[in-house]
Design a protein around this nucleic acid. Sequence first.
DNA 1: AGCAGGTTTAGCG
DNA 2: CGCTAAACCTGCT
Length: 150
Amino acid sequence: MTGNTDIIFAQPLGCYVELTYNTRLSSIRFIKSKNGLKEKKTFKATFELEQYFGGEIKEFSCDVDISGLSPFTQKVLDELRKIKYGETITYSGLAKRIGSKAYRAVGRALASNPIPIVIPCHRVVAKNGIGGYSGGVDLKKRLLELEGLP
DNA sequence: AGCAGGTTTAGCG
DNA sequence: CGCTAAACCTGCT
């Protein structure tokens, strides 16, 4: 693998974001380092992400590569991408959408989601609270606020 | 096989 | 009202 990566600074989150590409966008990760990293923008999705953070766009048009994940997980993530900007859904609600009541398994699927934000796992909240998040609940809150949610 | 996970719901103090 | 306990389903070790 060539390991093509882009890096941008996400103002609303207060941290850097690293995007990894293969043939498609394959993974996103958050970098908490305070040291000055160089922003690098070469792929379309990178610009989209930057525009998203700036509130200029609400949806992503780029495709993602989740072929390495299990069928159930892919199904969950695929369904999750249909959740629109500014909307939220509960773990059980999402499970119901794919014809299952495995809300616990849904949480697991989201935890193994390689591409947060583009696959809006932050829009999935617990029925009685905000729920959890791979990159930290604090990060999740900021993402929700960015979309105008309490 | 067994365990743990980004939950949920019901039951008690 | 806040907390503990058991249950559901999947992916991993």
